[in-house]
Design a protein around this nucleic acid. Structure first.
Lengths: 248, 248
DNA sequence: ACCGCGTATTGATCTGGGTCAAAGTACTGC
DNA sequence: GCAGTACTTTGACCCAGATCAATACGCGGT
């Protein structure tokens, strides 16, 4: 378990602030120091809301560990997840004072935050930070567009397979024995969260997961522990051209 | 009609390069001059492909006039539009040499392009450009997330209403007589393009447009000329909380 | 005026995924 | 061990939107 001590030193924060270790390789020590000055950590438990859409937002930050989701809700209660925040992902928009989405901790969550105004000051003085942020935002935009294809054109089964492969790619805890296409991980999302991600109902998610299990595309131990015996098979099910390259 | 002469002077290019007039208000004359040096225009006819996904992309640029679309296609031919590029929108990702999406001119199109390498050089030396680009990218990301809600959770009727209100917001040619919620514009998309945008079939698009017409939400002259007698009514149909503010 | 072709509308029918309902599973706390 | 709660699975039925098919509209070319 994480405790405050383990976070006291920035070394512990491998996934931290816009990857500032990477940034700072190109910067002078002052910038690192100034980032450290305005940095603080926040922890949340699974299910807790980090911030509500419309609230004042006086920080930006990145996910250190755990998973958070960005969701949008219509007045009648329909909700759509519009961002899945994994470790190292950035939260908050420099230049905007109000949260545009609900941010909810999907698992226990640690975030590394920076007070917004000093961060923006620093950013305007440190081109590398703005450039790094631009790269990250462009990556997010690509992810969002990939997701749009999933939402707009894929079947329920393909949607589930797509989500599993995304999580597998970023969350795998084991590549199996030797050179093999096996991937093992724990699902960090409830069926309902998966449904919100994919624009489905939780019943459909459950049914399709059962179907993929029945067909041998995935194996389940309990509700959450997933084994993908053949990653290429999964990618095929997702409707992605399986790239050709080795994904590991 | 636009001709080469009308484009020769950068004044004509009101919607131009990452709004460089705005950037340059904060820059010295050198940067403007260097942007001008690497700038050139390209014209396309409706239906022409600007670039295919996977092609080498040696430029970045922005839309001056006309409309282009970013689309993704699966091997079996299903396609999803993932970006609708209106005048002033930016195309291309600094730092990536290959196009990730098909870019197609939906109407006759003029783009203002910059050769990629010099543009990147300039960008690394001119913080304001990177910052401006970051803002634009964040705006696009917001638009993409809005769109995800549309794709994932809205009904066909709501999807059409959402698309019409987006186009009305950015493309309106007339605000009607005096203070009124009337908006008039020409649809720049075929039914098929609208379907690709919304994750529907063109038949469903056609049916829903007919239904909105029958219910008095919109009026049509020919297939393309649209009148929205009451913009608030349309926003309501789109399932958006009608903001409260005057949209004009 | 007629043809051809791309675009749009409309109808008839089918189906994937939504909705409603009922169990099943796995925890936590007593 | 038992009750309570949150999550998941499974079944039965239904409907919004897809699919297949026919027709209509508009426009440039001869």
């Amino acid at each position: 378990m994480l405790n405050d001590r383990s976070l006291a030193v920035s070394q512990e924060c491998a996934n931290c602030p816009i990857k500032h270790r990477a940034v700072c390789a190109r910067c002078d020590g002052n910038e690192l120091e100034r980032l450290e000055e305005i940095k603080y950590y926040r922890k949340f438990e699974a299910g807790q809301t980090v911030i509500w859409s419309g609230d004042r937002m006086d920080f930006v930050g990145s996910v250190v560990s755990g998973i958070a989701s960005l969701t949008q809700t219509m007045e009648d209660g329909r909700t759509q997840m519009v961002g899945l925040l994994l470790p190292s992902d950035f939260v908050g928009r420099p230049g905007r004072g109000t949260a545009a989405y609900d941010v909810v901790a999907t698992t226990d969550l640690v975030m590394c935050c920076f007070r917004k105004t000093p961060f923006e000051d620093l950013m305007s003085k440190t081109p590398h930070i703005a450039q790094r942020l631009l790269e990250m935002t462009l990556d997010e935009l690509d992810a969002a567009r990939e997701w749009m294809l999933v939402l707009g054109r894929k079947t329920a089964r393909e949607k589930i397979a797509s989500l599993l492969s995304i999580i597998a790619r970023r969350n795998a805890t084991s590549g199996g024995t030797g050179f093999k296409n096996t991937v093992v991980f724990d699902l960090p999302l409830t069926r309902e969260a998966m449904a919100d991600y994919l624009g489905l109902t939780l019943e459909t998610v459950s049914r399709q997961i059962s179907a993929l299990k029945r067909d041998g595309v995935i194996e389940l131990e309990g509700k959450r522990h997933v084994t993908i015996p053949d990653m290429y098979r999964l990618l095929e099910e997702a409707g992605d051209d399986a790239d050709g390259g080795v994904f590991a």
